[in-house]
Simulated scan of single mutants.
Amino acid sequence: MTKSTVLITGASAGIGATYADRFARRGHDLVLVARDKARMETTAAQLSQETGVTVEVLPADLTRPEDLAAVEARLREDDRIGVLVNNAGAGLGGRFVDQSADAISGLIALNTTSVARLASAIAPRLAARGEGAIVNIGSVVGLAPELGMSVYGATKAFVLFLSQGLALELGPKGVYVQAVLPAATRTELWGRSGADEASLPPMMEVGELVDAALVGFDRRELVTIPPLHNATLWDALDSARRAMLPGFQTIHPAPRYTAA
């Protein structure tokens, strides 16, 4: 049986490059998407030589409308692509009050707009075919405003919510949607966001993160949180959320909001 091609964004380094390595070794052809064409070409040549799969390079800056449109077209039109790994993302250093509007807009464009639009480009085709997968890389920061990364965390909360919603809509049509929530992982993102890498605390290695995420992928988990050792905590949080749903349908305010 022919294995589907996997398109991976942010594939020039870190989590994306590691996903490329792992899927290539599983026998999948690849389409790599990132800004750094030279680096992707080096990765493509190495993986093709070591695994025998076909690896194509599609240079794109997903914050540029024309580049995003080109990747969307590829996802809509290439029937070989059956898995999308929505990994491209960035961080933003400093406090919210010190971050520029342009920096905030750029972060939102990459971390949320591109994720939603690329999923939108491939989902109708996968649903019509009745199979395929969309993997969205979020972050535990999306569950933790206490960490102080307000805009970044908000974008990752969006990724989690989008993934959960798509899983409900697309799952019955045969399309698997996975949200992966890493904690601090040793990648180049930290340096790019302005962090002092020498002062950073211990982190999960990227190979361990991706291997764990792929265990969740193979098990068809809806939300995979590799650093969370006590999985019942996530189950409890999700159960509490579900328990609130009936209350959202009431037509009068709760008694605590009525005048004394």
Rank of each mutant, 00 (worst) to 15 (best):
I122K: 03
V97T: 07
L84H: 02
L107N: 07
V83L: 11
S139Q: 02
L143A: 07
S100C: 07
E77C: 10
N87K: 12
L160C: 00
G165Y: 06
F158N: 09
D102A: 05
A103F: 03
G148E: 11
V115C: 10
G91R: 02
A128W: 07
D78L: 04
A103I: 00
L84T: 01
G138T: 00
T155P: 08
G93I: 04
V159E: 05
Q164P: 00
A101Y: 04
T113H: 14
L147W: 05
V85D: 07
L143C: 05
A133I: 03
N87Y: 05
R117Y: 03
Y152F: 11
E146D: 09
G142Q: 08
R76E: 11
D98Y: 14
R80H: 13
F158G: 10
V135W: 12
R129K: 14
S120T: 08
G132A: 05
G89Y: 03
F96N: 06
R74C: 01
M149N: 06
G93L: 04
R125L: 06
N111P: 05
L147R: 01
A123R: 07
S139D: 05
S105P: 03
R129Y: 12
A119Q: 03
A154P: 03
S150H: 08
V151S: 02
G94N: 03
L75E: 08
L107E: 04
A73V: 15
S150E: 01
A157C: 06
A127W: 13
G148W: 13
A154M: 00
G89R: 02
L162H: 13
M149Y: 11
V115R: 04
A123S: 10
G138S: 14
N87F: 08
A119K: 02
V85G: 10
A127F: 12
A101S: 10
G148L: 15
G82Q: 02
R129A: 13
L84D: 00
